[in-house]
Each structure stands twice: as structure tokens, then as C-alpha cells.
Design a protein around this nucleic acid. Structure first.
Length: 829
RNA sequence: GCCCGGGUGGCGGAAUCGGUAUACGCAAUCGACUUAAAAUCGAUGGCCCGAGAGGGCUUGUGGGUUCAAGUCCCACCCCGGGCACCA
């Protein structure tokens, strides 16, 4: 007997990592077929299909956390699986390195964000290598490198030239804590997505990107991509498409037309008043000279000082003030009073609405509060009681409208009325979106400078492409004071106008970091290119990303912006595809004791400590074994131990088998059994890989290993080695180090150069199986049945089963159901 | 309020097309090895009745369809997520 051998990941893991690093095993070249990744068996892989596997760009802050481990455990499993299926796999890595945490740290400590970020990046690099993730490090990038953000600026200029980037003064969301504006997407329930402070509204001139031009395509192209349905739904909700009509109401006193958007032109005859948003530019002018002038002024002031949270509160009572004017309802010529009320939003539609209290809950509440007429124009609902069933939101025939439409079902009347409006030039069919343009400027230091200058003579001028990058200057004081800290860097701010050569000042705002991460997946395809953002040929080779992996928290922000960039760049002729991420997988959160891990709760599990104690293979396998990877999982130290034991058993059994001589005392039956189990596992793991069921894939390898242990002394050594090496081969995408070691011990070969195992179909079929015998749907017995037995034979077999007979006991069989390969069910009375 | 997920042993979970519910793992109990412990190996294991053979019950609750329901249909309860004055 050989001496006791121990599974030592601390020895095994660095050894294989060194092989992969020295041989650049996971690097792929853009020259398909030459000098690229060695294919199966070391042969070049000329016509191999490509596969681009990408995890969402991490923000390097401190050390990687358990969520990173899960994300990359999933991504690496897919990358390895694709490679072994014969694909050329691009699996790169980089860092989303601009951003607030590093800057806030700088404000506190004075350490330059570049330095603290570099320290974090070094820690990420170390740990990712220690996890054994199969990354092509030759394409590594950081968004804070001038070499990268030069091209971020270049893209910004492309958008600017195309009219997709513009400056506008608007009411914007301001975070008083971070002292910067925010995009709509970064405001969650009226609070800053980053720091949680309640946001304020400020009137400021800011940079926007015209994402709303793409609303329709962002919506309709969702149909063609393989994303989780709930993520698509979230994007659809965010885009918020509404079909309806734009209808013109005229204020005769001022001679001004006010268009409104409505989804319910069928209720036009029920419009009894008209409401404008407090921010609407005409409100003061309308009220001027009326008895309501002062009241309107007061109301607007109040509305503007109210926080967005207060104003948006759902249970808030409706308030408003009359404007002292009327507009004409275009369908019936009625003069209806105008109001200003804060339940109307300037940003949506035209900032003014027709109010139909009979068929809209909000208008109804306002009408009740101000004693305005409420008219039913659609039949339906109860029509009983004090409120006569109003407001009624449902469908029904029109009433009290016009002879041409009364009696018509409202859905038909809707299009009939729109057609009428169109003919009379009083309106037309229209579509509205909830999506707003993307506010991208930030009054902060640690971001990509916006490459424009302002010249007194020429106005705003883009920095010429050959002067890029506009580099971020070093400054002393990072603290934001309502303007960008860059504004204090006088030497940097003062520059010459690229048009006239006169004095000019640089834009001091920086870009939202989501701009940086909206195109990085393109840069990986050609990361070393200093002549252009990318060579189109490189993109043609790799894009789109075949499998994207990341957290669901980016369902709207990053994923929407990246899709927008792709479409805009495609329109400008820089790309020839419309969607960046063909398939998306969103991994669930890792919690501890049911709660989100956080420093303040003190329940943080650090990947580094797990790797140090149990090894990377254990950590990676465990995180995939706890449950379906798209669901949240709770961390358990005991569970980790279980997986560690499993990997230890695999390794020890292999080490023992590697030394064993063939004895020829094997029992044929045991060999066959083990071969069957092995082929079953190949089949099971292969299909589980394709549906991201890594937990059951690992369980299947556990079953195979249990069978290897059970039959260790009965099956032949060759069979045993085959079964064990197959187990290692199947588990390799999850536990690469120990599996490489086991495979090497048993075969002397490199498992990552082997093709993915193929199940032998003959071995998946059995000549006998266990037939389930039911009486009245209840399981009563099991008998061995030949695989090729027909229904009659199966029925007879079932009838002979002792416990079946006991339950038949003279009763009459009224029905027999035979499902070959499964069961026989006898129905008795 | 609207739209998505989800509810299965002591615990994490499995059951992929309506066909043996509880795979795999954790925790637990018993045993082997050991002076002892750790490590490792083996056995047991949904609940109730029974010595056993076996029987009854069991997938949030209540109904339904079916020879057969965790799976399909209807109603409801609970948990998680998204949207929410968007006209």
C-alpha cells in the first residue's frame, strides 16, 4: 500500500496557474488560424467558430468580493466549455476605473485617485490569477488610462458631430452629497443611486446624449436577443412606450395652440378642464393680467422648491391653481378652464394635459378637489352610487359625445376620432416614451474629460481629434463645490481655441462613468490599437458578445446605455451590428445569513480567505453548487467544507488509481455499470452546461465519483481510470486546477487540450429497466423489464408483481395505462 | 395599484415534455480505524402507524381537470424584485 496522500490545493493551484501564465494558454490572436490559441490536440484552429464570453467590467475598489467570484465562476465555466467544444474563445478582463468611490477616498486622504485605483487593480489582478480564471491578459484595459479614454473622447466627438450629444439647460437631478448632477436612471425612489441622499432639482445647463432618438429601436430590438425575460421587461418599462394622439387645444385669448398627448382620444368629449405643469414656460404669461396672477406665482414657487420625493408621493392630495384662461376643446368647441397643477410633469408629453375626470383617476381626484364638472362619455362599470361608477377606466360604447361616435365601441371610436382630428388638422396619431435623454456631464474630478472648449469668439468648439486625449490634470483639492474641481486648475482650463487660436476655456465637467463602460467590450477586440478605437476587421471577428454575464442591478443603466452606443456607432458607420450582447445571463446575489454582505453588518466573506483556506477550486465549485446561479444564494461555511471533501476524494482516488497496476481480476458486470454511469454523467453534464444548471452538473459528477468509490475494487483499473479522468474532464470548467492535475495523473495529458467528452449512445441505453407498477395511480411494486418489451408484455409483468396482486385481490381491472420505459398503471374497481 | 419571479425534508436544493417526489450536498445518528482526537471510510435517514412485511399522509392554502399533478386550470395567502401622478 502506498503512503497516504493528501489533496493540497495550495500546492496544485499555483503550479497549474504558472503553466497557463508561461504558455499564455488563454490568449487568442485576431489572426484566425495562425499564431493563435492552440486548438484541440495542439493543432491550429483555422475555421473554428468564435465565441466571445464576457463578464461585466468590475469597478476596482478594495478587493474583489464574493459577487465577483460568482460572476467569473459562471463566465469561466462557459468559456472553458466553449473552448472544449472547439470554439476560439475571447475571454478578456479590464477595470471600470473612473468613479466616485476613489475620488471620495481622495477627498478624505489626499491620495490621488489614480494611485488608490492602481492599488485596487493590482489586488484584482492578483486575485483573479489566484482564482485561475482563464483570461486573455494581453487585452487587459482600464478606463482611466489616457490610452483608453482618448477613444472615449473620440466617441463623444462622433456623437457631438452627429447631433447626438448636446448642451441644454434643464431641470436636472442634483445629488447634494456627491455635489453633482445625476442621470434619471441613477435616481432611485428620489434618492441618489450611489450614496442614497435625497436628490434635489436644479435648473442647470448640462450635456445630454440623445438616447430618446433610439427609443423605438431599443424597444423593438429586444425581441431578437436572448436575454432573461425579466430584464427585457424592465427595459420595456423603462422605455415606456405609449400609443395615442397629439391633440391641439387653442387658447383664443393669447392666440396660442397647446398640443397635448393622450392615450385616450376616445374620451376627448369628456375633457372638462386643461392642466399645465408648473415648469411649463407659458404658465406665467397665461396668468398675467388675470386675478390669479399672484396665486399662480406662489404656486409655481412652491412646486419648484418641493423635493421630487414629496411631489411624487402617491397619496399626495391633488393641488393646483386656475390660470384664469380657457382653451377650446377641438372636438366640440367647448371652452374649458386652464389650471396649473403639479401632478402634470413637464418632461413627459408636452407638459400639458387634457383632463377627463370621468375616465382618469388623477383627473377625477383633481375635479373633486376643485369642484369641476365630471362627464361620463363611456358606458360601463357599475354606474351606481354617489359617484356613479366614475372614474371608469374600462372599455365600452361611447355616450354624450357626438352623433357620429355615440354607440361606437371606444376602441373603434379611438381611431375614428384620431382620423377626424387628422382631417381637421387638429391632431394626429402619436407615440410617446417615458425614456429621457441621458445626462452625461458630472461636476466631479475623477472621470473622462469632455473634449470641448469654449471660445468667446467662436463659442463651443470640439477639441480636434489629433489633440486627443484631453488629459486629466493633477490637482490638489478634489472636493466638489457645486462645480467641477477641474475648474480650479487654471493652467489646464485656460487654453487656445482650436478654431481661431484665441483665448478659450476648457469644459470642466467630466463624463458619467457609464460612458466609459458603454463601449469597452468593443475595445477588447483590438485593445492594443493606438491608431484607432478599433480596426473594423477586429470587430467583425469577435462581435457581438456571445455570452454576457453580470448582475441584474445593471438591467437598465449599463445594459441600456451600451445598446444605445452600439446603435449610434452603427448608424455612424463604425459598426455593422445592432446589438452588443447576443445572450445575457444575470447571476443572483450571494448573501450571508439571508442578508446582503456589507462591512457595516460585519458579514462579509472574502474570497481571498476562502481561497487561502480551501483553494480556488473549492470556492468556485461551491458558489456554483449551492443552487441555480441566476438565483440568490446564502453562503454557508459547512457547505464549502462539503465541496472541499468532494474535490479531495476525487484527487485522492485518482492519485491512488494512478499508481495501481492492472490486475485483471475485474468483474465484467462492475465495469459495465461504471461505464454506464460515466456515459450518463457525460450526457447529463453536457446538457446541464447548456442551460446554466451548474449545480446539477456538479451533482452529476459527484454521483459519478461515488460510483467510482463504490466499484473501486470491483471494476478494472482501466475502466476506473477512464471513469475518473472523465469526471475530471467534466468538472474542469468549474475546478480547473485539481481537474488538470487529476487528468495529468491518470493520463499524462492536458485536459484543456482535450475535446469535450462525447457520450456513447449505446451506453446510455439499458437492456433492462425498473418498471414502475401502479394500482389506481399508487406505486405498489417495481419489476425488472426488458427494454424492448411491448405493452402486452409489460402489463403481464406488472400483473405478476407480488404486491400488485395483493392490491388487485379479485377486483375488476377497468383500465390499463402502459407507458413503455416508465410504468404500468392498473385502474381497478 | 400594475408587471415579473418564487413558496418542496432540520437546511441549500433536485425532479428538463403531466409518469417512481425529496437526486446531490450540508447538518444529524450509529459503526470502523486511532491510546485519543482530527482526517478518512462504511451504514441509517420526509412524517405517522408497525417488530417486520407493509400501510397511511406529504411539494404555501382551498377547489378543479386527469388513469396519473410539485408540474396544467381557477381562487386565495405569504416572500422577493421591477415600475408607479408617464396623461
Amino acid at each position: 500500500m502506498s503512503e497516504e496522500r493528501r489533496y493540497e490545493p495550495q500546492e496544485i493551484e499555483p503550479r497549474w496557474q504558472q503553466v497557463w501564465a508561461e504558455e499564455h494558454t488563454w490568449e487568442v490572436s485576431n489572426d484566425a488560424g495562425e499564431g493563435g490559441q492552440a486548438g484541440v490536440g495542439g493543432a491550429p484552429v483555422g475555421g473554428a467558430p468564435k465565441s466571445y464570453v464576457l463578464e461585466m467590467l468590475p469597478y476596482p475598489s478594495g478587493e474583489p468580493h464574493i459577487g465577483h467570484l460568482k460572476c467569473y465562476a459562471v463566465g469561466d465555466a462557459i468559456a472553458h466549455f466553449h473552448r472544449r467544444l472547439g470554439h476560439r474563445v475571447l475571454h478578456p478582463m479590464g477595470y471600470d476605473a473612473f468613479g466616485l468611490p476613489a475620488e471620495n477616498h481622495a477627498i478624505k486622504t489626499g491620495v490621488h485617485p489614480r494611485d488608490s485605483t492602481a492599488v485596487s487593480i493590482a489586488s484584482f489582478q492578483r486575485q483573479f490569477r489566484s482564482w485561475g480564471i482563464s483570461i486573455d491578459w494581453s487585452r487587459e484595459l482600464s478606463t482611466y488610462e489616457p490610452r483608453y479614454y482618448r477613444w472615449t473622447q473620440w466617441i463623444f466627438l462622433q456623437l457631438l458631430h452627429a447631433g447626438l450629444a448636446y448642451r441644454k439647460e434643464a431641470a436636472v437631478k442634483w445629488c447634494p452629497n456627491d455635489q453633482t448632477v445625476l442621470a434619471n436612471e441613477q435616481v432611485v425612489d428620489g434618492h441618489c443611486e450611489r450614496c442614497g441622499a435625497e436628490v434635489e432639482v436644479r435648473q442647470l445647463e448640462q450635456w445630454f446624449l440623445r438616447i430618446t432618438d433610439y427609443a423605438e429601436r431599443l424597444l423593438s430590438d429586444l425581441d431578437g436577443i436572448d436575454w432573461p425575460e425579466h430584464v427585457k421587461t424592465m427595459q420595456r418599462n423603462w422605455i415606456g412606450r405609449s400609443e395615442g394622439a397629439e391633440v391641439t387645444f387653442r387658447c383664443e385669448a393669447l392666440g396660442v395652440d397647446y398640443p397635448v398627448f393622450t392615450t385616450r382620444p376616445d374620451t376627448l368629449f369628456g375633457a372638462t378642464f386643461f392642466v399645465m405643469a408648473p415648469e411649463h414656460p407659458d404658465v406665467l404669461r397665461l396668468a398675467q393680467g388675470t386675478p390669479y396672477e399672484q396665486a399662480v406665482k406662489d404656486y409655481i414657487n412652491h412646486a419648484l422648491t418641493e423635493s421630487s420625493e414629496e411631489r411624487g408621493a402617491l397619496d399626495k392630495a391633488k393641488t393646483g391653481v386656475p390660470l384664469g384662461r380657457t382653451v377650446t376643446n377641438p372636438v366640440n368647441g367647448e371652452q374649458i378652464p386652464m389650471y396649473v397643477a403639479d401632478y402634470v410633469l413637464l418632461e413627459y408629453g408636452t407638459g400639458a394635459i387634457m383632463a377627463v375626470p370621468g375616465h382618469d383617476e388623477r383627473d377625477y381626484a383633481f375635479a373633486r378637489a376643485y369642484d369641476l364638472p365630471i362627464r361620463r362619455v363611456i358606458e360601463g362599470g357599475s354606474e351606481e352610487g354617489d359617484e356613479q361608477g366614475l372614474p371608469y377606466i374600462g372599455d365600452g360604447p361611447l355616450v354624450n359625445s357626438h352623433a357620429d361616435f355615440d354607440g361606437m365601441h371606444n376602441r373603434e371610436a379611438l381611431s375614428a376620432i384620431v382620423q377626424w382630428l387628422d382631417r381637421e388638422a387638429k391632431g394626429h396619431a402619436s407615440v410617446n416614451y417615458r425614456l429621457r435623454d441621458w445626462l452625461v456631464s458630472r461636476q466631479r474630478y475623477w472621470g473622462c474629460p469632455i473634449p470641448v472648449v469654449y471660445c468667446e469668439a467662436c463659442g463651443m468648439a470640439p477639441v480636434p481629434e489629433d489633440q486627443l486625449p484631453v488629459e486629466l490634470p493633477d490637482i490638489e483639492d478634489y472636493a466638489p463645490r457645486g462645480r467641477s474641481p477641474l475648474a480650479a486648475a487654471e493652467d489646464w482650463v485656460n487654453t487656445k481655441c482650436p478654431v481661431c487660436g484665441g483665448d478659450a476655456r476648457r469644459e470642466t465637467d467630466t463624463m458619467d462613468t457609464f460612458v466609459d463602460s458603454s463601449w469597452y467590450y468593443l475595445r477588447y477586440c483590438d485593445a492594443g490599437n493606438d491608431e484607432a478605437a478599433w480596426d473594423p476587421a477586429a470587430l467583425r471577428q469577435w462581435m457581438p458578445v456571445d455570452q454576457y454575464i453580470g448582475g441584474v442591478e445593471h438591467a437598465i443603466l449599463h445594459l441600456m446605455y451600451a445598446r444605445f452606443f452600439t446603435k449610434a456607432l452603427a448608424d455612424l458607420g463604425h459598426l455593422d451590428f445592432q446589438e452588443p450582447f447576443q445572450a445575457l445571463f444575470t447571476q443572483g446575489m450571494v448573501t450571508k445569513d439571508g442578508a446582503k454582505m456589507s462591512k457595516s453588518k460585519g458579514n462579509v466573506v472574502s474570497p481571498a480567505s476562502i481561497v487561502e483556506r480551501s483553494g480556488a477550486d473549492t470556492a468556485r465549485c461551491y458558489i456554483l453548487f449551492v443552487g441555480p446561479p441566476d438565483q440568490d444564494a446564502d453562503w454557508s461555511d459547512e457547505g464549502v467544507e462539503g465541496v472541499h471533501r468532494f474535490l479531495g476524494r476525487l484527487w485522492r482516488l485518482a492519485a491512488e488509481m494512478a499508481e495501481r497496476e492492472e490486475t485483471y481480476t475485474s468483474v465484467e458486470e462492475a465495469d459495465l455499470e461504471l461505464l454506464r454511469k460515466t456515459n450518463w454523467a457525460i450526457d447529463k453534464v453536457s446538457s446541464d452546461m447548456r442551460r446554466f444548471a451548474f449545480n446539477t452538473a456538479i451533482a452529476a459528477v459527484m454521483e459519478l465519483l461515488n460510483e467510482c468509490s463504490r466499484l473501486r475494487d470491483e471494476a478494472g483499473v482501466a475502466t476506473e481510470r477512464f471513469a475518473l479522468s472523465t469526471a475530471a474532464s467534466l468538472l474542469f470548467p468549474f475546478a480547473p486546477h485539481v481537474c488538470a492535475d487529476v487528468y495529468d495523473l491518470l493520463t499524462g495529458e492536458r485536459v484543456w487540450e482535450q475535446p469535450w467528452p462525447q457520450a456513447d449512445p449505446a451506453m446510455l441505453e439499458r437492456d433492462v429497466y425498473e418498471l414502475v407498477c401502479q394500482v389506481n395511480g399508487k406505486l405498489r411494486d417495481r419489476v425488472q423489464a426488458p427494454a424492448d418489451a411491448g405493452p402486452e408484455e409489460l402489463k403481464e409483468l406488472c400483473l405478476t408483481a407480488p404486491n400488485v396482486q395483493a392490491h388487485l385481490d379479485g377486483k375488476e381491472i377497468v383500465k390499463e395505462i402502459v407507458v413503455p420505459g416508465k410504468l404500468v398503471n392498473l385502474v381497478v374497481r
